[in-house]
Amino acid sequence: MNTLTGCLVLLLIFALLVYAWPLLLVLAVIAIIYQIYAALYFKSEKFNTIKEKIQAHIHDCNDLNDHIENLKSTALVVNRADYGEAVYHDNSRWNVKRDALKKQVYAPYIYECSRTVCDNARKEPFKYICKYFGIKADEETLGKFEAALNDFSAAEDGKVALKAERTAILESISSDIPWAIKKFSQKKLEKNLGFEEVDFSTLYFPKYEFKYTSAGGNTGTTYDVVMDIDNLNRFVIYLSEKIKFSKTVAGQRALMTSKLRQHIKERDHFTCKYCGASTEAEPHLLLEIDHIVPVSKGGLTTEENLQTLCWRCNRSKSNKTTNVQVST
């Protein structure tokens, strides 16, 4: 910026301060008055009446939000051997020190590797995940990844249902809420009504990471394999192709994929087998797929052992199962 331009900018700022301050003062006063108005409104009897009218729906919405967060906490499989921990010391001369090596840390989902392994992992990610994270191609491991896919799919479906349910609740009271509150205090409105904060992002999907860093730290490469719904579907199929299924009746099973989940819902007419709730009566109802006989007790992923449950019944069943396991 040259001297002339700088002077012009200063003159413009000065002119704004001289001639615009009355307008800025008026805007500041209006903002203060509005803040007082909003604070009084959220404490008013009228607002409390609206809040009480929809309290049961908000509570149900928050319960669904908690359920989704629990589904999102599902962990993937890592069977890497833990060889202990050591402290790195570099006693080399200053010009041959390898500072980057001391920054390497042991983490179950991160594999510090050579550039060659890193490049190969980019070409065949599933193969190298199995090789370097100790994932065996067997029935037990396949079941764990199917369970993860089932939970994450339900979480994604739940986010859609939750968003629609919140929107429906807010629209049901829209005519009772002042325009200014809806326009300028939407977040405060939701908070004061009692809605819990919702995370609609997909950042919870776990990932396997192959990381190469040169000894000096000057070059590096990282390849992330994010286990989202698409990759989990493909990985389940990949593992199944590596497993030699038994030809006995007990060994016959389907794969818990997104396609099978949808098929079971259609078979059950999008209706909960426990309570009879359906998407016809509740358009935003979250439906989940449940093993009638749990996998932990020998249940198979077969159509006969799968059923559609609403999220409330499925959570209730899971809580009962957990309580029984704890008591024994």
Rank of each mutant, 00 (worst) to 15 (best):
N2W: 05
T3Y: 08
T5V: 09
V9D: 04
L12E: 09
F14G: 10
A15E: 10
V18D: 03
Y19N: 11
A20W: 09
L25P: 00
L25I: 01
L27A: 12
I30R: 14
Y34T: 08
Y37H: 12
A39K: 15
Y41I: 09
Y41G: 06
F42W: 08
F47N: 05
N48E: 12
N48P: 00
I50L: 08
A56P: 00
H57V: 00
H57W: 03
I58E: 06
L64N: 05
D66N: 14
E69G: 05
N70L: 14
K72P: 00
N79M: 08
A81K: 15
Y83D: 10
A86N: 07
Y88P: 04
Y88C: 05
D90H: 04
D99T: 10
K102H: 10
K103S: 12
Q104A: 13
V105G: 00
V105H: 11
I110R: 08
C113L: 09
T116Q: 14
D119L: 14
R122W: 07
R122M: 07
F133L: 11
K136H: 12
K136P: 00
D138F: 07
L142P: 02
F145Q: 01
E146C: 08
A148R: 04
N150L: 05
A154G: 12
E156L: 07
A161P: 02
A161W: 01
L162Q: 12
A164G: 03
A164N: 15
A164D: 13
I173T: 05
I173E: 03
S174M: 04
D176T: 02
I177D: 09
K182F: 03
K182G: 03
K182C: 06
Q186K: 15
F195E: 06
F200D: 13
Y204M: 05
P206Y: 06
E209Q: 13
F210M: 06
S214V: 04
S214G: 12
G217S: 12
T221I: 08
D224T: 07
V226M: 09
D228M: 08
D230E: 15
L232Y: 02
L232C: 03
N233A: 09
F235S: 01
I237P: 00
I243M: 06
I243K: 06
K247D: 15
K247A: 12
V249Y: 08
Q252R: 14
Q262Y: 04
H263T: 09
H269I: 08
F270N: 14
T271F: 02
Y274C: 07
Y274Q: 10
C275S: 03
A281P: 00
L286E: 03
V295Q: 14
G298T: 09
G299Y: 01
G299P: 02
T302W: 02
N305D: 01
W311N: 11
R312D: 07
S316H: 10
T322I: 07
T322W: 08
